[in-house]
Amino acid sequence: MGEVEGAGSETAKVRPIQKIIDAHVTFTTTSAIHDFLKKTPLQDLINWGRKNSLWFLTQPMGCCGIEMICTGAPHYDTDRFGIIPRCSPRQADVMIISGYITKKYMPALKLLWDQMPEPKWVICMGDCSISGGPFWESYSTIINTEKYFPVDIYIPGCPPRPEQLIQGFVELQKKITAKQDRTQKGDT
């Protein structure tokens, strides 16, 4: 935040986009308690709680955003699994990248990701967020998402059906139970 001046200043300098993208995420869980917990069955209980309460960040970005909305609504209803949308990243666990990431949107997305509390997961929904999809050769989209976000689940499709999104959540739950997700493996 050092480069954005505080209150009262007339100008707000803005970070160059490239710098924000490169900001490195370091995972510093060095607490002994935490390491100890990981060896006990208590971790399984914690994982059970986490996997059954995956709140996702409302952030429709494209076609997949519409399917994301539909997934939360009556016909599919993610609330069955305890998955509900939250508007503030502070209370969210999962970020669904639902659509094309443009170069303009990338800093905001990165900031939102930074602001989410640990443990957190990313779901790449749709071809656009995985590889660029139909817009892979566009001058304004970013096609290598995994370079910027530690992606746990990829859901292909253009757009994926709501069932596929639910399946993605189920796969994420399986990963958390098996302690194979990125935060537990520690290779963010």
Partner: peptide, 27 residues
Amino acid sequence: KQISPRSQAGRKLSTYESGSVPFGDAR
């Protein structure tokens, strides 16, 4: 505080404002 994980991302503690950088103080 003890049992929850902690991480240091670049701007984790910055003020949230819909993904934008806030302009000025809220107070």
